[in-house]
Amino acid sequence: MEIRLSGILCQATGGASTVEVSGATIGEMLASLALKHPAIQDHLDDGVAVAINGEIYRDRTDQVIPKGAEVFLLPRIEGG
């Protein structure tokens, strides 16, 4: 599947804002991404957010990614 990245995360993929990865869940998808682009690991350790069809998931690595879903990797965010 193709995932998209934004912000500072693109630096870890050599500037690419779309990356082809595999995985049925958020956890598998992130592992596949880290295998391809090891530099992303630091960001994954700090925490990232994953938007699946527009809904933002921060912590659920077991979240299933539906087929054909739009997946967007965002930097982790803080709130008040």
Binding site: S6, A51, N53, G54, E70, F72, L74
Partner: peptide, 9 residues
Amino acid sequence: QASYGPVYG
């Protein structure tokens, strides 16, 4: 498509 990336529900 939101300006920060994903598509809105």
